[in-house]
């Protein structure tokens, strides 16, 4: 219901949120079930670590439970708020991670075949996706994570990122161009 591609109506979303803010377990469970996989994919694509992504996904929804009463409807889709929570957790995680030496994704993923055709045909794993998106700029990466992994509309992505829809479309365009080069042009090491 919260996802635009499921034809969600603003009024429905507001009703659902009102019930969730009244601590209606059914409403909160609905929010959880409808967004769990998408939030997980969003986080996983950004950090490329399944175990951490699991912990953080769980934390997102516990944070939702704790703070949903403070959510105020200001015409922004609820998903904006949800992904903002996830985004903040990701930022915290990456900040902490940058302070400690860890094994980089590049070192844990076997190098792909050198034949471009073979590369094109092989199925992409999350590590490769994370690595490919890791080559994008931060803004491009955020657009791809929200749009492709989170399934948000351009309008929602624009709200989450605080940018205009045209700016987001331009970022999406440049991001896909870069992904194309990385995924099919043999730029992966």
């Amino acid at each position: 219901m919260l996802a635009p591609d499921r034809g969600c109506q603003v009024q429905d979303e507001r009703d659902l949120l009102r019930r969730a803010q009244d601590r209606d377990p059914a409403a909160l469970t609905q929010i959880y079930e409808e967004n769990f996989d998408r939030i997980y994919r969003y986080i996983l694509l950004k950090i490329g670590d399944r175990v951490e992504a699991e912990d953080m996904t769980q934390q997102v929804f516990l944070n939702v439970l704790r703070s949903i009463s403070s959510y105020r409807w200001r015409g922004m889709p609820f998903t904006s708020w949800l992904y903002r929570i996830a985004h903040n957790l990701v930022v915290d995680y990456l900040r902490k991670k940058s302070r400690q030496p860890t094994v980089a994704i590049d070192e844990t993923v076997p190098a792909p075949a050198s034949d471009p055709q073979q590369i094109a045909e092989q199925k992409l794993g999350i590590e490769e996706l994370a690595r490919a998106t890791g080559r994008l700029t931060a803004a491009q990466q955020e657009v791809i994570s929200l749009r492709f992994a989170g399934g948000l509309s351009i309008a929602e992505v624009a709200k989450v990122m605080g940018k205009s829809e045209n700016a987001v479309k331009a970022l999406q365009h440049s991001a896909i161009l870069a992904l194309r080069r990385t995924l099919s042009g043999g730029m992966l090491p």
């Binding site: 996983l44 694509l45 492709f148 992904l179 995924l183």
Partner: peptide, 10 residues
């Protein structure tokens, strides 16, 4: 990219 992500499930 989308196909790769769709396969990703918890």
């Amino acid at each position: 990219t989308v196909a790769g992500l769709k396969k990703v499930r918890p």
